[in-house]
Amino acid sequence: MSASGKKEGQGSGGQASGSLPGARPPHIPVEELSDETLVRAISLGVVWALEMLYERYHRLLYSITYRMIKDHQVAEDLLQEAFLAVWQNAGSYSSRMGSVQNWLISIMRHRAIDYLRRLRTHAELRGMPLEDAATSEEMVSADAWDAVWRSVQGAQLRRALTLLSSEQRLVIELAYFEGWTHSEIARAYGLPLGTVKARMRLGLMRLRSILERLGTVES
């Protein structure tokens, strides 16, 4: 899956030279405005800019949230909250914080994580058995994943995930998609905290190394 956002530098083509005064400027379709430009417009109170940003990213943000929450009603409420937060705080966005897409994902995930952490109590911390993680169709079945993953990067990452040990994959999955902290995972699985930390770090490093070899990320 990929969002159709416009990064800076993507936009209409045209001549890269000083235009002559009096010449009609080339047409820039509003759809080609960069994400950063839309966020600046939102910070000025321009409603259509928020609508356009919503059109570009709602599916991606909703898919992540639904994957984490597994409840359509709650996921929709959180999506609404996230875009209202964007409307109110667009002025605080700076390109120093990374791309607009990652900024939006961060806003969305933090809302989902807050919700999940509020919902969970220590008594409810029951871990997924390791053997489930190892045999979970979602984690292992390449065919099933390929059917729903739309992007090459997604498919490569999925392939890379299957190359991790089931222990590493489990802690990464619980942290990213379930919003668990490392200490919650350690408690639920009766593992030393250092072990959980190491599995997260080594798992991500291994993923990076695999993705570098595949050319998905730059080395």
């Binding site: 599916r59 898919s63 929709e76 994943w145 990067q153 997604g154 990452l157 991500l204 993923l207």
Partner: peptide, 16 residues
């Protein structure tokens, strides 16, 4: 940079 790719692995779902 690896974690930022995780959203690409999620099956697409459309909200109401």
């Amino acid at each position: 940079s690896v974690v930022e790719l995780f959203p690409l692995t999620v099956p697409p779902v459309e909200p109401s």
